[in-house]
């Protein structure tokens, strides 16, 4: 593999990791608060559709992003109503949200645009512009720094940088603020939080809403940054890869970034090469596609360190009387 190809692959790794990173952090915050969320996929899909549809109609990508976040938060609140207020099964609610998204995006897309469940392609201001980082042009020909800074790091849409900034932000909020402490406590021992006079319900709704915002950004980037428009089922399992990355990272923000970069790299390599040879062994493209899931199962099985979810995850909180 020559340098140019390597730069290309790493460049697209960053792009492919971005929606995964948003969704992974979204799931992380929700699950840290004790609300399991397997509906990341659905929220991303709804957001992707809304972003593309509204960006096309308004001609402004940021109005599209706002609509995407609003739609995703609405879905997140539906999950909240089912799993916090009505104490329903959080996993089943997540499954329902995924199907709701898969169905309703196509029904509405067909009704609005009549293009077989897709939106028209976006162009100009309806798509996310690529940003050149300062001095990117001037260091272009510097050895090493040039390819890394100009070739890989520079020239992405704003949301790519936002996603990576969300990593330290999430870490800070979770581990250095009172809100974060309470949020983690509510996922481990909600009764203790309740005894301290803090509302479990409000905290969990807060976490679910943040999860909605981040999934909204994930979907918006997918439809207006990574691609130029919405097509049916365009998330294609990314919500589940993000879920896998979250488990792989054992619910920790910095590790989450590592996990999504690894999974992004796998996707980038699988896109670039149909069949790879590693140490004389032909690796089929399907093995690359399945690798994130296999790695997650191995981690879950505790063969390489143990992945222990927040203790109160998945169970609704019932106040004692």
């Amino acid at each position: 593999m020559d340098i140019a190809t390597l730069v290309q692959v790493l460049d697209s790794t960053l792009r492919l990791a971005t929606p995964l990173l948003f969704a992974c952090l979204a799931g992380l915050i929700s699950e840290r608060a004790g609300v399991f969320d397997i509906g990341l996929e659905g929220k991303m899909l709804v957001a992707a559709f809304m972003a593309a549809a509204i960006a096309f109609v308004s001609g402004n990508v940021w109005i599209g992003v706002a609509a995407a976040v609003a739609a995703s938060v609405a879905m997140a609140l539906l999950h909240g109503v089912a799993s916090i207020t009505f104490r329903g099964n959080q996993l089943i609610s997540g499954v329902a949200i995924n199907f709701l998204a898969a169905g309703i995006t196509v029904v509405i897309a067909q009704n609005w645009f009549r293009q077989g469940g897709r939106t028209p392609s976006l162009s100009g201001d309806a798509r996310m512009r690529r940003i050149d980082l300062p001095f990117a042009e001037s260091v272009r020909d510097v050895p090493f720094l040039g390819p890394v800074y100009h070739g890989i790091l520079s020239g992405h849409a704003l949301l790519v940088y936002v996603a990576f900034l969300c990593v330290p932000l999430t870490w800070f909020v979770l581990f250095r603020t009172r809100f974060g402490l309470r949020l983690r406590a509510v996922g481990e021992n909600p009764a203790a939080v309740d005894t301290a006079g803090v509302s479990v319900v409000r905290l969990r709704y807060g976490a679910v809403a943040i999860c909605g915002v981040l999934c909204g950004l994930a979907g918006a980037y997918l439809a207006t940054g990574l691609s130029a428009g919405f097509v049916k089922d365009m998330t294609a399992g990314r919500g589940f890869i993000a879920l896998a990355a979250m488990i792989f990272a054992k619910w920790r923000p910095w590790h989450a970034m590592g996990a999504v970069l690894l999974f992004g790299l796998l996707e980038a390599v699988a896109n670039r090469f149909q069949n790879m040879e590693i140490l004389g062994l032909a690796v089929p493209v399907q093995a690359m596609q399945a690798l994130p899931y296999i790695l997650t199962v191995v981690i879950l099985a505790g063969f390489v360190g143990k992945a222990i979810p927040p203790r109160a995850g998945g169970s609704p909180y019932v106040k004692e009387h």
């Binding site: 109503v81 089912a82 799993s83 329903g88 089943i92 609610s93 329902a96 949200i97 199907f99 709701l100």
Partner: peptide, 9 residues
């Protein structure tokens, strides 16, 4: 799924 499973209550 939503009504029979998650919003059962």
């Amino acid at each position: 799924i939503l009504f029979t499973g998650a919003l059962d209550n």
